[in-house]
């Protein structure tokens, strides 16, 4: 045995300490990148998402400054230029009262987009609170809260939306006519306010479910235990540790809720339950245009195309955002 060991003479050069340059090559690591920068890198690589983002930005820009650039006001009735086809003067043409359709479509886009964004914010607030409480406390609290979500889920949404709209209209109306109603609410009008109510009351369930699922997984993590050992209150644990750790999913769901809300608003306006005249939304424009569909098809084309573009681009962008913020969800 010992003889054999001696015969295996190893080259001493193999055991020299590594030089600095050799050490440096061993330390090549991926540079440390933060969560947001990493997500942005992934998002930028996604051509569809970046294209959609560009379209969204263009539509938003048009909705904000488009009506200002136009020489006509959205409710300005131009006698003698009724039902004009698209031309240099009126790029989208005019409607049956001679109002400029370009201005009206841009105003409609403005209304639709703000409905989408405000609804997404309200949905997020309610959904996050509900989901976080349900997931964090678990047990009976969770069971009861999830059954309530199941009930909200199982009702035919559009039907309830219409019923709520009709039911809410009168109380909101009386509130707005009372003296102490704030001015900006009066400007919004009964239709829009009740749309917000309806969206906030019915569309938070997805958000709540996703937040709950995330928090169920996160609350078992050791950093939550660590906060408990330090004596952190439940509120601190939920809002300082748990919710910030599922912000990626929250953003994705909130983004995907925007087109959903826009669609509901357009649909309600289309069946005459949304914004009131002379205010325009993309849905109410489509509805007015439907009457003259055989003679003046362009009147329907522009608002309908705008709705489609907005919904499609936000949906595509939301999908890209999901892949970027939560790469594990990607197949």
């Amino acid at each position: 045995m010992t003889n054999m060991n001696k015969s295996e003479v190893l080259d001493e050069k193999l055991f020299l300490p590594a030089s600095d340059s050799e050490k440096a090559t061993a330390e090549v690591m991926r540079p440390s990148v933060g969560y947001w920068r990493d997500a942005w890198r992934r998002l930028r690589a996604n051509k569809v998402a970046m294209g959609s983002l560009l379209v969204i930005l263009l539509v938003v820009l048009a909705a904000i400054i488009g009506p200002m650039l136009s020489p006509y006001a959205y409710d300005q009735i131009n006698k003698g230029s009724e039902n004009l086809p698209p031309s240099a003067q009126h790029i989208f043409g005019t409607d049956s009262l001679g109002r400029d359709l370009f201005t009206r479509t841009m105003i409609g886009a403005r209304i639709s987009l703000s409905v989408g964004v405000v609804a997404a914010i309200m949905i997020s607030i309610i959904g996050i609170l509900y989901g976080a409480i349900s997931g964090y406390f678990g047990g009976w609290v969770d069971i009861v809260m999830m059954r309530i979500i199941d009930i909200v889920y199982s009702v035919p949404t559009i039907l309830i939306v219409i019923l709520l709209q009709v039911a809410l209209k009168t109380p909101i109306d009386t509130f707005l006519n009372s003296a102490n109603a704030p001015n900006f609410l009066k400007n919004l009008g009964v239709g829009l306010i009740s749309i917000f109510f309806v969206l906030a009351l019915l569309y938070w369930v997805d958000m709540a479910r996703i937040v709950r699922g995330q928090i169920l997984a996160l609350k078992e993590q050791e950093f939550v235990l660590a906060a408990k050992v330090l004596g952190a209150s439940n509120r601190d644990i939920i809002f300082k540790h748990l919710v910030p750790n599922c912000i990626g999913q929250i953003i994705v769901v909130a983004t995907l809720k925007i087109p959903e809300a826009i669609f509901v608003e357009s649909f309600l306006s289309f069946i005459g339950l949304g914004v009131s005249i002379p205010m325009a939304s993309l849905g109410s424009l489509s509805q007015t245009a439907l009457k003259g569909i055989y003679s003046y098809p362009y009147m329907l084309f522009f608002p309908a195309a705008t709705i489609s573009i907005i919904i499609l681009s936000i949906n595509l962008f939301g999908d890209g955002l999901r892949d970027a913020l939560d790469p594990r969800m990607k197949k």
Partner: peptide, 12 residues
């Protein structure tokens, strides 16, 4: 804690 990767909040 045992696991220094799980016991620190990654967003803090």
């Amino acid at each position: 804690f045992q696991d220094p990767y799980a016991s620190l909040d990654p967003r803090m």
